[in-house]
Design a protein around this nucleic acid. Sequence first.
DNA 1: CTGGCGGTTCTTTTT
DNA 2: GAACCGCCAG
Length: 738
Amino acid sequence: MDVSFILDALNDKQREAVAAPLQNTLILAGAGSGKTRVLVHRIAWLMHAYEVSPFSIMAVTFTNKAAKEMQARIEQLVGLPPQGMWVGTFHSLAHRLLRAHWRDAGLKQNFQIMDSDDQLRLIKRIMREQNIDETRWPPKQVCWFINAQKDEGRRAAHVPPSNDPFSQGMHQLYYTYEEVCERTGVLDFGELLLRAHELLLNTPALLRHYQQRFVHVLVDEFQDTNTIQYAWLRLLVGDQGSITAVGDDDQSIYGWRGAKIENIQHFNKHFHDVSTIRLEQNYRSTGHILKAANGLIKNNDDRLGKELWTDSGEGEPISLYAGFNEQDEARFIISIIKKWRDDGTSLRDMAILYRSNAQSRVIEECLVREQIAYRIYGGHRFYDRLEIKNALAYARLGIDVNDDSAMERVINIPPRGIGERSIGTIRELARDQGCSMWQAAMEIVRQELLPARATNAIKAFLELIQGMQLTIQTDNLSLGDIFEQLIKEAGLIPYHEKEKGEKGAARVENLKELVNAASGFSWTQEDAEEEEYSSPMMAFLDQAVLDAGEAQADEYQDAIQLMTLHSAKGLEFPLVFLTGVEENLFPSRMSFEEPGRLEEERRLCYVGITRAMEKLYITYAESRRLHGSDSFNSPSRFINEIPPECLEEVRLRSQVSRPVSTQRPTFERPITRAAQLQGYQVPETNVSMGDRVNHPIFGEGLVVNYEGQGPQARVQVNFDDQGTKWLVLAFAKLEVLS
DNA sequence: CTGGCGGTTCTTTTT
DNA sequence: GAACCGCCAG
């Protein structure tokens, strides 16, 4: 068979990777080196050169988007959809295993998946039931704690005991949470992975079966695997199978979510006979951009080592712009955008990247003023939206009336006179009787345990849901029809129409979109053979949780792309703005404490730089209004780490052009805000950072921080013997000592 | 049960 | 600066 079409369009290294022998392979693929391409061609190569059946191939990604893209590209290259191949995210594959073997996994047949939002609600509910102080154990932190444990593959019983009451409380909550999930048959995201791992571990026959089946496992973005994902892979691959891992240790940016960069760093210790191939030729960016990226990332230790190169020329140097404040920064960016647009670049080819979402607002306002179309990535995904989740909850309740979390969500949406008191009574009764809220509600209606008004309201609700049950079970209704019907019965449209502002209208639109999505859902295409779904509705609900969908529908509109650096990974744009590149913001001040965090920030910066194809602008603001008060940050250390010859400073109103090198501050670590502000005068006052001051009551001290300006300015003074205090400058009679 | 007010918090977020 | 939460008054 002629297999040359698979290798023809590849460079030497790519070819080496694609045609690597059938053994464990690590492909270190730098940014823009054709990573996905290699993976897809490798699969085609296995099928054609080795006549591997698609049945024995599993390809794993992190995002649904990546999975879909891979699937599409395999089809394109091989010619037809590969029957029997498993391509999906870690979560969707785990889910598939669990649906097929729910009994072995110790699950209920109709187990439900909950997303992070449901999870947090559940935790709050549990804590309220147990009267746990939410200020001591903030539910968000509890949630974070549980997820972190699950990422590490630890059940409550595996969490090492601790002496301090705070950790003990967390631990105890994990136990309770686990028990509630078990009892009610709901699984969070982490649980999918944990269960799938345990399923294989505890069922040797099953493990053998899958090990024999999936002889070839391919993993994308390997640097982002966490402990449990890694354990699952190792188990599945076993001694006989082979794994092809593609990744880039320099682009590991999810450590804070449990990803272990060590997994890729120590790959060849854990898998045998590993051949490692480096893809370093970059097809994306200009020489200057790559040089900057290489120079920056060199400051990290413990790298597997890689240096990107290109043969397509130096290109323009990176432009560095120091904005006076965030407004000025935004104005500058938009002036450049206009220039490029007028020169014929599509808006969709330009991206503005930032470290944190809060930064987008100023830029958005500016774009709106200038009437430039933009699109924000991230934010709330389709199936995450409140109105959508409510509609889905009605469906869930219609399928299983004992689904308490669905019941909690919609029992009084739209408001129907079942208030917190009534719900509390239902909850309490359910708890006492050990039954579901539905059953408790039935009981209350039967025995009229509440005032007539409340009882009637509950009765009406129960009848509403019973009606929905019938709707869902009606045979000749399509999924879309069912949702249309449910939304109507629940009265969600008039409810949202009543909302003030644009919001309500958008929600009504989204509900219509949900009906559309449901109509278009094709269940038969899914490999239904192994999944024991009793209805298309069940399958639809699961996929709605696992694939939250695109954030915005108008994907093809020509618009500037705005996103966080995290969401930019994997994308590329001819023109890129890296904004807010200031100490405390990027690197984020949160990253200073824990070791290793700073390196992750640096990798994030590396990711940002390598998104740019032709031209990169780096901007920062000398003063920035964030969270309501002004901060004065120095330019990021990352700017210093970029080789000066790649950088060129621009000044719009250029009277003074400061040479880049002299303006660079030197950094001592740890950098405190006080150190940075040293000598800075609080605007419209006579006080500067670092001044020694005298206060009539507190005595002498040092000005270490401030916020606001002019009459509103407050300063933080570190008094010699009174500790630090915040004082309003206008009132405190501070005397500046020189 | 709803609406309004004040206090608090504020990195990133593939599933 | 705004979003979210909890508390209180109507």
